[in-house]
Nucleic acid binder design. Sequence first.
DNA 1: AAGCAGGTCAACCGCCTAAGG
DNA 2: CCCTTAGGCGGTTGACCTGCT
Length: 311
Amino acid sequence: MSYTTVESDDGMDSSIHYESPGADSIGNGCRSKGKGNVLKKGPWSSTEDGILINYVKKHGEGNWNAVQSHTSLARCGKSCRLRWANHLRPNLKKGAFSQEEEQLIVEMHAQMGNKWARMAEHLPGRTDNEIKNYWNTRIKRRQRAGLPLYPSEIHDGDLQWSEEYTKSNIIRVDRRRHQDFLQLGNLKANDLWEELNFASSRLPGASDPSDLVACHMLRNGASSSRYESYMPPILPSPTTLRDSGYRFPMCSSNIKQEFQSPEHFQNTAQQTNPRSCSISPCDVDRPPYRSQHPFDMIPNSHTFTDGMFPT
DNA sequence: AAGCAGGTCAACCGCCTAAGG
DNA sequence: CCCTTAGGCGGTTGACCTGCT
């Protein structure tokens, strides 16, 4: 689905507003070059697009703040960069994500968290903004449905991604990592065992990280605001990984394999019938335009009766 | 047909980092 | 070092679209 912004080539879109001259160095991070230009905001007109395209053809990408001084474009550098990167640069793919792309996004998100720009590097023609928008709408949908974010199907692939990702030294400790799941990721081995055990007892067949999360929520009270967003786990700290002895906590299949020791695990989780712990059937209403989405409906996924987590 | 709710998407905002002086 | 600047990134917002009642 697509729609076009109502705009006129003279740029006088009714929704467009202008920055005050004195506001160019505060607030939005855009700084004019002191020409007294009033920087325009809001949707871009085709005229502006043309100006920017011509500028890039002439001067190349980068030095975006110079666009103002070299052209009649009254846009800040950031706005130009964003417009170029997300809409004007060549080889951009438009339209719905293919199933392969969707699967790749899910897999990468399982590894990277909200690293949209990094994900975009692996999806030629797609922008971080597109991926982010896609993911956020997907999050909402799945949240409403009470479904886990990561289908079990992706877990095998995750490990490969993990290794590749680690090798390429992409992983960096991010101060803004999701605290909620960092907490889960930082569970000590014993705690993790406990969670697994608890999950096994409460959710026969619980075998993936979503189970763990749900289980953790059950134990700690899902009404906690910490879980309201139900964001996915990201890599725990290397120390935690080393200490706990597991390589990749979000890969359910590997959780079982990596935790080979305790016999009670064998007596519980591994005896269970995998993927058979539906508490209630979930009937997710999906928008027609994503009718083939491979992940929105997960057979035997663990959902609660009302589609939400218990409070 | 009108109103409403939810979905989609473009663009902005604020923060961060690296580079350069 | 410290400051300034440019660019990058993730989160958020708001306009518009679509489907349902």
